[in-house]
Design a protein around this nucleic acid. Structure first.
Lengths: 211, 211
DNA sequence: GTCTATACGATGATAGAC
DNA sequence: GTCTATCATCGTATAGAC
């Protein structure tokens, strides 16, 4: 390998540009130019532009999901030992906290957050399928845990409320640059930890509502 | 005008294809072919592909916002007459109900809903700016009304919770074709009215949470 | 195995004839 | 207003150098 980091340089360049300008608005030529590699290197290493997007996503998503699943399983195990059901807030936290912590300024995952939020919103394509495929085991576990914590809710209600929470979260993820729709004199830049708690207040209340 | 409905035919064709395949994945050639007009007609009537998207959005968004604003003002007026503050659930309903009712099957606005949900998620471009520009007066009014209804909440908290609700709503709007992330044996296709109430349960509880 | 140079068809856009 | 012709740029594929 004369250029051992060609793949990584392409991944980094693509991640940044996909997150900044969007998938379709980014050309392979600008990605390879920024990475200082040949245009054809993308198709050689990844096969296609779409496969490159997939590689960009998976590189960050798999470790993230491992963390989320680990926290969830640990919570469930601990609750079982005390013979109690875990609190829905704690369950949601295992999913939300690791996600929003990726938004920490200066981290190399900053771009990924914005990108991920957008992938969830693009029309059905391979990217969306891949994303769902990699999220599914975790989502099923999350659904089960919430069902345990909130047995009075029907599966239908629980499903949709989880859907609502995911929607909010993906919205926050992609709107961290703040294109405020309500221009106010208020501070709209809380710390990541403040944001986590604020979102957990909202999401837990919505989840637990009995009606 | 030898072809008085050329613009409308382009708008209809574009709306459908943008909503189905996404903005970037749709070519002007397929739009004009389906509309049975010449390729150059788009640039003549609208100026560019992006301006066409804007025209597609505004055609539906302006009437929708008029309805939403009308319902909100009527609610505020009625509450003032009785010298009471409007309930947050009723305020949210003025925004959410007209939106989700556009999803009614067979309506000609079905495509617009999916499209709108996606516009909110695309990277910053003219479309996003236009959307925000057309939403701003309504959002300010909505924020004021909620602030009146929930005076105990800080503006910061209220802003973010409204942000969360918008996020959920746009997520529902774009995911109505059901690419379920939790494949369950449950019915995930409630009626529009059921969905409205289910979402209002969730959103109102999240909004009103005191913490 | 890696990388480069180059070519191909399709796209968004535009200028000018009618 | 509408159409044809044309352009730069896009993603992709391939042949061949190292």
């Amino acid at each position: 390998m004369s250029q051992p980091d060609t793949k990584q340089r392409i991944l980094n360049s693509a991640e940044h540009q996909f997150a900044t300008d969007g998938y379709h608005a980014t050309s392979l030529r600008s990605i390879t130019a920024a990475a200082a590699v040949n245009l054809a290197a993308v198709n050689y290493h990844f096969g296609s532009k779409e496969a490159l997007l997939e590689a960009v996503i998976i590189r960050r998503l798999d470790p993230l999901n491992k963390i989320r699943l680990g926290k969830l399983e640990a919570l469930l195990k601990k609750a079982e030992q005390v013979k109690e059901v875990p609190a829905s807030r704690d369950i949601l936290r295992t999913f939300i906290e690791p996600t929003l912590h990726l938004r920490q300024q200066g981290s190399d995952t900053e771009d990924f957050v914005a990108l991920t939020g957008r992938i969830l919103a693009e029309p059905r394509g391979v990217a969306m399928s891949i994303f769902i495929h990699h999220m599914e085991p975790l989502m099923i576990r999350l659904f089960q845990a919430l069902s345990l914590s909130l047995p009075e809710l029907s599966h239908q209600t629980l499903f949709w409320r989880l859907h609502f929470v995911i929607g909010s979260l993906s919205h926050i993820m992609r709107c961290h640059e703040r294109h405020s729709i309500v221009p106010e004199d208020i501070s709209i830049d809380p710390s990541v930890d403040e944001l986590v708690e604020m979102f957990l207040d909202f999401a837990t209340a919505g989840m637990e509502e009995t009606k």
